[in-house]
Design a protein around this nucleic acid. Structure first.
Length: 316
DNA sequence: CACTTGACCTGTCCGC
DNA sequence: TGCGGACAGGTCAAGT
């Protein structure tokens, strides 16, 4: 799922929705999704407040007043969804009728039939939370909740000291943020030139070269730059790399404006879908005509990923 | 080394 | 309708 624009959209939503909220309980049904112990949760999360939300590449960092942070990777199917109220109904539906205490061992009760009154933009989702994809449930003092849902269980969240966030393996190796003003074409060119033996699609997807680009925006930016995804990086002209640099930035900035891409699972922090795919040029458009030249858009497999190109604009 | 291929999971869709 | 296989937005570890 979530690539840079989607994670950025979630980050902006959480900024508005949860900063300042005090945690009273954290529960989880899956140690892979959330490996922290009950001791960690009680010591560093319960009674702490969310102070800040950050994004680095596709990783979200939510800082707490305790000096700890939740670090979250949504991988393919992860969601972070905030729900303001339905708590009282749900507690009545649990077996013992008691509100749960903080406990990363106690399974989340997935029996809610509570509905959102008044028609939320995506009440088909949030009215039903928690559901069977819910891995972690955070409850705030005002009884609002934050759900971490993840159908495929590839995603994870962890509670670690804020000062340690920069030291986790992923953070140490991840490349520069492509949308920062400080990220210039000269930096981009140097980093790509170092990878001249591999194909350009694999290189764009390599998080150590450049942060945050995934399969959708790799395909979209290669179309923008008229580059075939199997081209060897060493064969690319500087003018082609410049177009690619522009394409990556243009495509992902546009997607953030559109709230990201929803192919299947992705929703923002309010449970709403993104509309970028309406504007996509090639991704999931095999069989359609290229809007630039009218030729057919085809699908290939490159770097082990489904890959969409214009059969004329992007020659090998 | 640098680069490529499976594995991790669950769900859905497509062809027989 | 059922069943098997391919595939899905990401990243690692293990292979070549």
């Amino acid at each position: 799922m979530p690539e840079l624009p989607e994670v950025e959209t979630v980050k902006r939503g959480l900024d508005k929705l949860i900063v300042g909220k005090k945690i009273i309980a954290v529960s989880s049904d899956n140690a892979k999704s959330f490996p922290n112990s009950l001791i960690d949760v009680n010591s560093f999360a319960v009674n702490a407040s969310f102070t800040n939300v950050r994004r680095r590449a596709k990783v979200l960092i939510i800082d707490l007043s305790s000096g700890y942070s939740f670090v979250i990777h949504l991988k393919m199917t992860g969601q972070l969804v905030f729900v303001n109220k339905n708590v009282e109904d749900r507690i009545l539906n649990t077996e013992d009728g008691k509100s749960r205490v903080a406990n990363s061992q106690i399974p989340i009760a997935k029996t809610s039939e509570a509905r959102f009154a008044g028609g939320h933009p995506n009440d088909s989702l949030i009215g039903k939370l928690p559901d069977k994809s819910t891995r972690v449930e955070i409850t705030f003092e005002d009884n609002s909740k934050l759900f971490f849902n993840d159908q495929r269980k590839f995603g994870w969240m962890r509670l670690i000291p804020t000062v340690e966030v920069k030291n986790i393996d992923f953070m140490k190796k991840v490349g520069p943020e492509p949308l920062e003003d400080s990220f210039r074409f000269s930096d981009f060119k140097i980093r790509f030139d170092r990878k001249k033996r591999s194909n350009i699609k694999a290189t764009i997807l390599d998080q150590s070269v450049i942060a945050g680009v995934g399969n959708i925006y790799a395909d979209e930016s290669l179309w923008y730059a008229k580059i075939h995804p199997e081209r060897n990086v060493g064969s690319l002209q500087a003018t082609e790399l410049k177009k690619l640099y522009e394409g990556i930035r243009y495509t992902m900035k546009l997607s953030i404006e559109k709230g990201g891409s929803t192919d299947r699972n992705y929703v923002d922090a309010e449970g709403k879908k993104g509309s970028y795919l309406t504007f996509a040029k090639v991704f999931r458009r095999e069989g359609q005509e290229c809007e630039r030249c009218g030729s057919e858009i085809i699908k290939l497999r490159v770097a082990g990923r489904g890959t969409h190109i214009c059969s004329r604009c992007q020659e090998l």
